[in-house]
Every structure is written in C-alpha cells, then in structure tokens.
Design a protein around this nucleic acid. Structure first.
Lengths: 238, 238
DNA sequence: CGGCATCCGGGAAGATACTG
DNA sequence: CAGTATCTTCCCGGATGCCG
C-alpha cells in the first residue's frame, strides 16, 4: 500500500518544509518541521533580543540570500513563531519580531549550544553575531565563578548596544540603553569579545591591539569576561 | 568569486550538510550542521534507548528511504554521534549505537518536544514510535502528580520491551527486561498508550477495545498513565 | 536480508539581477 | 531598502540492482 501523494496542495500550507512532513506525533519531529529548515533557527536567534528589519536581519545572517530569508520569514510567520509589525510613525517601517511563543525558544538555543560546544568539530573562532554572543552569555554563564558578585556591563558592538546585569547567580541581557553601566565594552566585532570570554585571550592584549575598548571600571569588565565556561570537548571515538 | 565545488572530497568530511556550512561560531548553528539535515535527529531518537540494526531503524522511521538512512548514518558517524558496532558471535551482526556524547542529546529532545508541543499546529494523534513514547515519558513526566508514589511498569509494544520506574520524583526508562514489574502494559502500537497518557482516553476504554492489555496490578498501570501532562498550546496571533 | 551504489524526477537552496 | 524573478546547483526521496 503506497503513501498518498503528498504533493497534494492545500494541505496545511502553514507548515514549512514545503509539504514534506514526518507524520510523527513526536514533539521533536514537529519542532523540526517548524525550525528544521536551513537558516530558520538562526533567523529566530537574530530576532531573539528584539525586532529587526529585513535588511538588518540579512546583514546579521552572513551568507543567507534574500529569497531564502523571505521564505523563512513567511514560514515562521505561518507557524506562529514570527510576527510582522509596522512601527508607529514617524518611523513607519516594517519589522519582524518573535511572538511570545517564539520567545520561549531560548532553551532550544541553550541546549543545542551546550551540546554542540562539545562537538570535536566545533570551532569557536568562527565569526559570531552579536545576538549569538549575548545568547552565549546566558548559556555559558558560570554562576560559581560569579558567586557573591554583581556587575552591570554595557556593550557597544558596531551599531548595537546591550546591557548585561549579573547578580544573585543570574545573568540578564537586554538590548538598548547602556547609560550608567559600571563598565562599557566597545568593539567593532563580536568575536573580539568571544576571544576573551572563551578563547583565553587576556582583555589587556585586545585592548592593546585596539580591538576592544573599555570605558568606566575596567576591573568590572575584566572580571565579567571571566565568568563564562565552555564545556569540555567530547572524545572522538576510534 | 564562486564557491569551490563542494563535492570536492577531503574538505572536512566529518561535517554533514554536504558542504554547506553556516561559518558561525554559535553553538546552535554548529548543532544544526550536525543534526539539522532531514531525519538526522530522528535517527538519533530511534537509537536513544540502545543499538539498532539498519532494518529495524528503517522500520521505525516511517517514510525514510534506505539511501537517505545510509547517508545520515554516515554523517552522524563522521560527526562522532553514532558508532557502528559488530555484535559478538554468534549474533555477529552490525548495529548502530549512539556514542556517549550522542547520548547526551536527551535534553535536545526534551526542550524541542516541550516547545513544539505548544505549537498551534502540533497534532499528538499522529503515529508515534516506541522510542518517542519513552522519550515523551521522560519529557512530560509531572512529578507533582506522582508525588509520594512509586511504580515499576513494564511495556511490551510490538516486539520491544521497556521498563519504567518512578520514584523520588524521577522517572527512569530502560530497554529490556520486564520480569517482576508491578504491571505490564501491552499494546501492538505505541499510539494506543499515548491516547491514554496524553489524549484523555480512559485506559479501561482501550482495554475494552482490545487495543491495550494490562498484566499484573492494573491500578498501578492506570495511575502511572495519569502522571503526564502536555503543556498548553500557545496562542496563534492574528 | 543488510547495506551500499546508481539513476532519475522534483523541489529547496544559493547567487544574481531586477523592481517598487 | 525591501523584497521578487529567474536560473543553477544540489539535496531529498523512490526505484532498481549489486554484493556479501
């Protein structure tokens, strides 16, 4: 007995994967139908800290082409993960934002990130978007290292600003205002920060090289960047 | 400047996606390079409770074709997630198993499953593999409902047997021996069990219909199947 | 039977060019 | 700037056939 032809149109056009489903009640399988297409999850990642315009989205996703981005935004909107919004005048431009349910995807990034960081093939020196860096702070934050400490750190990475607050064993991230932070870490590119937090590079070395600038309390900035731990790599079996 | 031909072998054959990478240090992006291809994560799901042969794997993944399964097993093996093993004589057949690091993927299924279960489009009445059902027990176990209780339940689903033990707020699953369980739940297909645990169907109704049989303490079986909760669906925005 | 190679049709991804 | 149109390349899925 053959499967019925699934190219039959008009069947749940809301679901992505162009009409190829797993026909599986398993939640993970359904998740893959929503976010399993190439780029889909990375689009969500880039929207995680707030709405973005098409062009900014495309710029932050190095390598995606406009038509693929359009398709993904359509799929994700149909799935209820992304919402298209028009900003109020005078800035009446269209932006894309995660829905509340889309926002709940943070654990997906944490779990995938922690698992893949143990991959023998993972290369943390590759380019890194600003959104990824902020997500990595929440994923790799090591509360033991920050025990008993607080910090209020601003980031200015290219044109984006983020504020990170640490206290009570938790780390909060928000896009936007950095006024009044104890220290502000400034860099043209996110990977420079990752090199310090994850690559063992001394902050002072990157400051000397001009890749990173710190305003305010440099001791706070230095301490803060030591509060993150990458998991050990897994063994590659014979 | 064109990309070099990526069918060119010898370029990190360890990584999947046939030579299309994200060039992104983000852990989630790297995870997608490993498990983001169609079927890859479901292959891992089917291996989660122990090694399987090619044919059993193919049978449990309704709809996969042999060549795609071969490719996925190759990719996953190259990535260090899956290991090919030869069972000792007399049963000297080849099986596929997760590596220790591959076993660490359980949180991925939990998080994806919990998130996707809230999808407005998720249909829990679709077919369900035995591995998925067992994974769903660990994902959707509601310790509050089982508070102060223990259970030791065997499952015989088609040709597979699993043993599930609940105690101290935790739920353990193991493939294999079910001798001495307090109750054994028998069904030809996993979805019958899901209909009780997640679909609100009374166990007695399925027993009457002959879809499920219980041996041993039926009260234990009935209680056990009430200890699981699906998350609420998210709102579909206008 | 288990596993792999090969061929084919359809469709998704990627690059480029173009339009409002 | 925000997408659409088009073309090419490559992946997915099915079928068949080989070889242990």
């Amino acid at each position: 007995m053959k499967l019925e032809k699934v190219t039959d149109q008009s069947v749940t056009p809301t679901t992505a994967m162009g009409g190829r489903w797993y026909h599986d009640a398993c939640g993970a399988a359904h998740a893959l139908e929503i976010v399993g297409e190439r780029w889909a999850l990375l689009v969500m990642r880039e929207l995680f800290w707030g709405p973005k315009r098409f062009g900014d989205l495309k710029a932050s996703l190095q390598g995606i082409s406009a038509n693929v981005l359009t398709q993904r935004l359509e799929s994700l909107e149909a799935a209820g993960v992304v919402q298209r919004r028009r900003l109020p005048p005078p800035a009446s431009v269209q932006v894309y934002a995660l829905t509340p349910w889309g926002q709940e995807s943070e654990p997906i990034f944490q779990v995938l990130g922690r698992w893949a960081a143990r991959s023998p093939d993972h290369d943390p020196t590759l380019p890194l978007s600003v959104s990824s860096l902020m997500l990595s702070f929440r994923t790799m934050f090591d509360a033991r290292k920050a025990a008993g400490r607080t910090a209020d750190v601003g980031f200015r990475l290219g044109a984006e600003t983020f504020r990170v607050r640490v206290g009570g064993g938790a780390l909060e991230v928000a896009r936007g205002d950095i006024d009044g932070a104890e220290a502000t870490i400034i860099a043209p590119e996110a990977p420079a920060i990752a090199a310090v937090a994850y690559g063992g590079q001394p902050l002072a070395a990157l400051q000397a090289a001009g890749a990173v600038t710190v305003e305010g309390d440099a001791a706070v900035a230095g301490r803060f960047l030591g509060w993150f731990t990458l998991p050990d790599k897994a063994e590659k079996p014979a």
